[in-house]
Amino acid sequence: MLSIQADNPVIELKSLVKKYGDFTAVDYLSLNVYPGEIFGLLGPNGAGKTTTILMMLGLTEPTSGSVKVCGIDSTRNPMQVKRKVGYMPDDVGFYEDRSAFDNLMYTSGLNRIPPKEGRERALRLLERVGLAEAAHKRVGTFSRGMRQRLGLADVLIKQPEVIILDEPTLGIDPEGVRELLALIEELSRKEGLTVLLSSHHLHQVQQICDRVGLFVRGKLIASGDIDTLSRQLDGAPAHRIELDVATAAEPIEDSIRGMEGVLSVTRKETERLASSQGEAAPVTLVVTSHSDLTAELADFVVRQGVRIHGLRPHRYGLDDIYHRYFEGGETRERMG
């Protein structure tokens, strides 16, 4: 990690601003992405992720600030940047009545790859993303997951140094997401590609990203790996333990609250799916603390004469970070 940071950044944003009239989409954003890492840009919809990406490619001009990709100014020399960067837009579109192979050949033609070489690369990439047998089918017949994989092949055909994926996992089923992410990770690790992916699916980002940046209302509020993030978040409790106890007598909560180091105890609402077991269902308590209290807690509860059905220690994850920052008006907008 440290050795990576020592290199020159591949993507370098300096106090980038983009305004649409009165609305500020990107607000003094500074960000560095280093060679070979997978960087996750995490934020709710409308946070300015796509706008930032468009500015990196020179497709939109920033109001002020500078964007450099591979040391090239994207605003001044978009052509050179676009030669080195592969971009997959969210909800990537293809020419529906052409085959997957034709679509790739078109992209390779636009990148001035000689037809013979383009053909080889297209076939190799289709093989790689698992679309070899569908190569000559019309893209119109493809499923969402297949399209995303074709999108990845489309990005890779120009043999880029950096790939930028905008919401690559949107709308794919869990298995498809897993495959796609595995593919992205493999590419990055094996070929040393720098990957920047934007998402609002924190779990997916968590799985493969080296570092993430939290992006809310045009501002980068925190960035780094998960540990750094939880440290950056002021006053966030570091540990959380979920405890399933037999039908909770009220006092147990209070007595846990009395333990040393415990910050809070809350009763977790039972999940609908699990509630069919009847009245004997255990109650889940969520205990937060500064230090790891798992062993002490178990010991304490048993000594109180309450049976423990389950004990799950949690580290503070992106989940909580996400909730902390995104559960404003933005999430509700997204649902609607």
């Binding site: 490619l57 497709l59 052509m79 050179q80 676009k82 030669r83 960067v85 592969g86 971009y87 997959m88 837009p89 909800d91 990537v92 579109g93 293809f94 020419y95 529906e96 992209t107 636009l110 990148n111 001035r112 489309d154 120009k158």
Partner: peptide, 17 residues
């Protein structure tokens, strides 16, 4: 139609003017 199909942004992100 290219815009609606989402092919416009893909084509313009290639090295073309």
């Amino acid at each position: 139609s290219e815009r609606n199909k989402g092919t416009l942004s893909r084509v313009l992100s290639q090295p073309v003017h």
